[in-house]
Amino acid sequence: MDEDYSSGSVDADREMTRLWRTWRTVFEMLQDRGYEVTEEEVQIGLDEFRQKYADPMGYPDRNKMKIQARPTEAMQLKYTALKTASNPDPQPDCGTIYVEFCPDSSGVGTKQVRTFNHFVDENNFHTGVFITQTPISPSAVRLLSGVPGRICEHFQEQDLLVNITRHELVPKHVLLSPEEKTRLLQRYRLKESQLPRIQVSDPVARYLGLRRGQVVKIIRKSETAGRYASYRWVI
């Protein structure tokens, strides 16, 4: 084996490992959000991942890395609005999610985002997740969030290198269903605007794909009370 090739393969190996970690975090994220993913998919080993997604040179082939997942029934229940007089049969507000890794290594602009938006729209996905290696331009961000009727999110690969929700200092965040939310508000006789808040751009909120108006329950360990639950309204 000559010198050049080995240095190239070390490089490829590092990139492959990084991407494998990102890949696993994406699956953990889908699982935490409540999409149907199997345990094997989440626990995929590095070797298997390399077999599946490496190109002949040993570098990851991002064009092959596309994920689709459907929501579980539990998730559909959580995303179904309460019955009202005008809407006696509310439909769950979630659907198939589509994750794409952008193969371009630098300079991701409106062109790639437009293609992505078009693909999501054409295949009628409810949510799209666009994962890039570098930050995308401000106009591309605006374009991504401006798709009518669809939700498009953006992550950088390095943001997902480790799963932040598995960190010991990050408390557990649980999304409340509309029913649980009304019960909470009745119990404490609150208006939702009287709850503490959490931003949509909060890292954990982005991880869970929270939307404006939802309420999330945060469970912390407490020295005095054992477990302490607080609630936050997503704005």
């Binding site: 609005a81 309460l82 009202t84 005008s86 809407n87 509310p90 507000d93 979630c94 409810h126 969030s145 401006g146 009518p148 009727g149 669809r150 939700i151 509309p178 208006k191 939702e192 939307r211 404006r212 108006g213 939802q214």
Partner: peptide, 19 residues
Amino acid sequence: ASQRRAPPKPAMSRQQKKP
């Protein structure tokens, strides 16, 4: 709302509308 993200809004705005 419908421009940005149509699906999540209706449920929420309906709750807010009454008061």
